[in-house]
Design a protein around this nucleic acid. Structure first.
Lengths: 210, 210
DNA sequence: TTGCATTCCACACAAAAGTATGGCATCCTG
DNA sequence: CAGGATGCCATACTTTTGTGTGGAATGCAA
C-alpha cells in the first residue's frame, strides 16, 4: 500500500477540516475519508485524533460533526451572520429588513442586534469612511458624543458623527465640504452605532452564468 | 397539554437554529428539542419541517445536523476563518504563521490563501487605511501597479501601493509626509495583496476574569 | 358536526456517524 | 533484531441522529 511522508496527509486533513469549519458545517469522519481519498474511515479518524492530541483541533466526544478549532470554542468570539440591508440613502430601512441581500460574517464584541449598510458619499472621508465602504451597525436608539451613528433624518439614512448638545442632536460630517446637520428632533432618529467599517479593494470575481 | 399561540414557538425555534448556524455547528433535532423544552423530538422536527416549507431554512436530507440558511448555501460565498498573524512591522512573519493570535471571518471573493495583519502608522491615510486597521491579505508574490500590497523590505513588513516601473518595484505611501520606497530587488519581496480593510470603532468589551 | 390546521407527546425503527479491534508496511532507534 | 512511531486498510459494533407512525387537544371554517 502506498503511503505519504509523515505529516503530509495530516496537513491535507487539517486544511479540509478548517475549510469545512469555516463554511459552517463540520465534516463527519466519512466525509473526511472521502475528501482525502482514504479507503477506510479509520484512516481519517487517526489523523483527526492526532490533530486533537496536537492541540490543533478539539472535539465534542461522541457527537456527530463534533470537531472544532480550539480557540474558537471557549474564549473565541463566535461568528454571527449579519444581514446586509442595502445602502445608506436607500429607501425605507424597515422594509429592507425583510429583504436583505446577503449576510456578512462578523464577530460581535458586544451583545446586540446588527445590520450592515453600504456607504454612499464622501462626507466621512476624514474619518476614513469612504464611498462604497460597508458599515456594520449595532441597533441602538441612543449613543454618545463622538460615536459614529446611522441616523434617519426625514426618512433618509445617513452616517455621521454624533454630537449631543444638551438634548439637541447634531450630526457632523468628517469632510470640510459639508456642514453639520441639526435636525428637528421629531424628524430624526438614531438607528444604531457604527462599530466596524470594511472596505473591499477587489471587485467580486465574475461568476459563471447559470 | 399546554400549547402556545400559532407561530410563537416557531420563531423561538428559528432564532435558536440561526444562532447555532452562525456559531458554526448546526443543531440536531434533539438539541432543538432540549433548547426549546419539548418532551418529544417530533415536536422539534415538525417546526423544522415547517420552516423548510416556508423557505426560511433548507436542509440536506437525511444528514446529521443538515439544516442551513437558504441564501447561505448555493449562491452565497462561504465564510473562511483567516489567521491574524500580528501587526505589520512586527518581527518575522514566517514565524508568526505558526503562532497566530486568532481568526477573522471573511468571505473570500477569490480562491487563495489569506492572512490578516494589523496596520501600524499613518503612511496610507489618504487611501483610508489608518493606524490600527486590519488588512486582509491574499498571499501572492506578484501584483500590478495600483495594488495595495504587503511587502517585506529588509525583513520589515509594510503596507503600500505598488508601482512597477519595468522590473523595478516602488512602494508608494498615501500620505505626503512620506516618500516612496525604492527597495533593492534582493531585499524586497511581495507577500500578498490587500483585498480588504477593516476598522473597529469600538474596543473589545472587557471580559470577566477567569 | 366534520374536517383541517396547528401545537404538542410517545415510541419504534432505520440510517448515519462515532468508535474499537485487527492487520499490514515502512522507517528509525536502541 | 525488536520495539515504537507513522501511514494506511478492513470490518464489526455501538451510539447518535433522522424519520415514521400513532395519538391528543384546541380553534376555526364549512
Amino acid at each position: 500500500m502506498s503511503r505519504t511522508p509523515p505529516g503530509q496527509t495530516r496537513e491535507r486533513v487539517y486544511r479540509y477540516v478548517c475549510e469545512r469549519l469555516a463554511a459552517g458545517l463540520p465534516p463527519t469522519m466519512r466525509e473526511v475519508q472521502s475528501a482525502i481519498g482514504f479507503k477506510s474511515v479509520q484512516s481519517a479518524r487517526e489523523h483527526m485524533e492526532k490533530l486533537v492530541e496536537e492541540g490543533r483541533l478539539a472535539k465534542h466526544e461522541g457527537k456527530s460533526r463534533g470537531y472544532y478549532l480550539p480557540g474558537q470554542g471557549a474564549g473565541q468570539r463566535s461568528t454571527t451572520l449579519v444581514p446586509l440591508l442595502g445602502s445608506v440613502r436607500a429607501g425605507n430601512l424597515t422594509e429592507a429588513i425583510e429583504d436583505h441581500s446577503g449576510y456578512v460574517p462578523m464577530q460581535p464584541r458586544r451583545a446586540g442586534e446588527y445590520f450592515a449598510l453600504l456607504v454612499e458619499g464622501d462626507s466621512m472621508i476624514k474619518a476614513g469612511i469612504m464611498e462604497g465602504d460597508l458599515v456594520l451597525v449595532r441597533k441602538q436608539e441612543r449613543a454618545v458624543t463622538g460615536d459614529v451613528v446611522v441616523a434617519l433624518v426625514n426618512d433618509e439614512a445617513t452616517v455621521k458623527t454624533l454630537k449631543l448638545r444638551g438634548q439637541r442632536i447634531e450630526l457632523h460630517p468628517a469632510n470640510t465640504r459639508y456642514k453639520p446637520i441639526v435636525p428637528d428632533p421629531d424628524t430624526c432618529r438614531i438607528l444604531g452605532k457604527v462599530v466596524e467599517v470594511r472596505r473591499h479593494l477587489e471587485a467580486p470575481k465574475r461568476t459563471k452564468r447559470r
